[in-house]
């Protein structure tokens, strides 16, 4: 499985205007429904919000990584959004969030290569240079290019 199989231009948004994290998750989920990655929007959103309840996915450095493993997911997908205005995500470092990765993982999926790709991206996000490259990306193509440098 290649990275391009889980992220595509349709689910990359470069200036998403939202007020709350719930709204942000809803808007990003809608994009993924349109792209055909999510079959049951309510079921998926419920899992994602439940995960947020257990502990924030605002990991600091203005990044949040809401995620859910749900039967409402048709295929593994990674949505990305840069926010027009930073919003509160109860982040670990208490700073507002400006970049969001929404991770959708099907409940049943043969193999775990998609999990390895997501794990690799999660690891990359801990490095400042990588985050800066994403921040500076000016087009969906740029974002894809940065993400591909695994």
């Amino acid at each position: 499985m290649k990275l391009t199989e889980i992220i595509e231009k349709e689910i990359i948004q470069l200036s998403l205007a939202v007020q709350t994290k719930e709204e942000c998750i809803a808007r990003m989920t809608e994009q993924m429904v349109k792209a055909g990655a999510i079959s049951n929007k309510e079921a998926f959103m419920q899992t994602v919000l439940e995960r947020e309840q257990k502990g924030t996915t605002g990991v600091g450095f203005e990044v949040a990584i809401p995620h859910g493993k749900s039967a409402g997911v048709a295929r593994p997908a990674l949505g990305f959004a840069k926010l027009a205005h930073p919003i509160d995500w109860q982040s670990l470092d208490e700073e507002p969030v400006s970049m969001v990765f929404l991770i959708a993982v099907p409940a049943e999926q043969a193999g775990n290569e998609h999990l390895r790709i997501l794990a690799a991206i999660a690891r990359k996000l801990m490095h400042e240079e990588y985050r800066n490259q994403l921040r500076e990306a000016g087009s969906p193509e740029d974002v894809m290019r940065v993400l591909e440098t695994l």
């Binding site: 502990g55 996915t57 990584i65 794990a119 801990m126």
Partner: peptide, 10 residues
């Protein structure tokens, strides 16, 4: 971490 998708690796 509970879902084991991202936080574990970060």
């Amino acid at each position: 971490c509970p879902t084991g998708i991202a936080h574990t690796y970060m």
